[in-house]
Amino acid sequence: MERAEREKAAGLSFPEEVASRLGGETIKLCYQCGTCASSCPVAKITPNFNPRELIKLSLLGERDEVISGDAIWLCCSCYNCQERCPQKVEIAEVIYALRNIAFEEGRIPPIYSEFASALLRDGRIIKVSKFVEKKRSTLGLPPLKPTGVEALTRILSATGFNKLYERRERK
């Protein structure tokens, strides 16, 4: 998040805080029709996740419940809800924005921190093992070109990703 945005977000109500962030802009358009919920494959198999409720809680300002809860991590990012929302609420993006807030506060599931550390180290979120890399030639595949780890590191530090990650590490 840009500094000006962060400053703006401080002191806002939770719905406004979300709406002021990249991805969260459309949250206030929600009128709770439930199309998202019935579109959601995850909601159908677990009571722990319902996109309609997640947005409702956010709109009611239940920041802690939303940010520290399990629900925001249960979205499978299938975009079914977003595709069909009659109010053009970008639900999947809103959930990313909520996850971003959670991350900034150091709440992050271990799998995501694995992804993040792999990204910082290798430039890929999944490491290519030496074994697999060697196997390429026997398969007749060209050798892998080097990744842009150095450029990536600079991008990640420009966006503050590094710091976000380190903050998590300290926690």
Binding site: L22, E93, A116
Partner: peptide
Amino acid sequence: VDLAETTCCAPPPVRSIDLET
């Protein structure tokens, strides 16, 4: 053509951490 210096595409796991990144 294989490009050098590419990185991860920054899919949902990265988006979850920071959309701008």
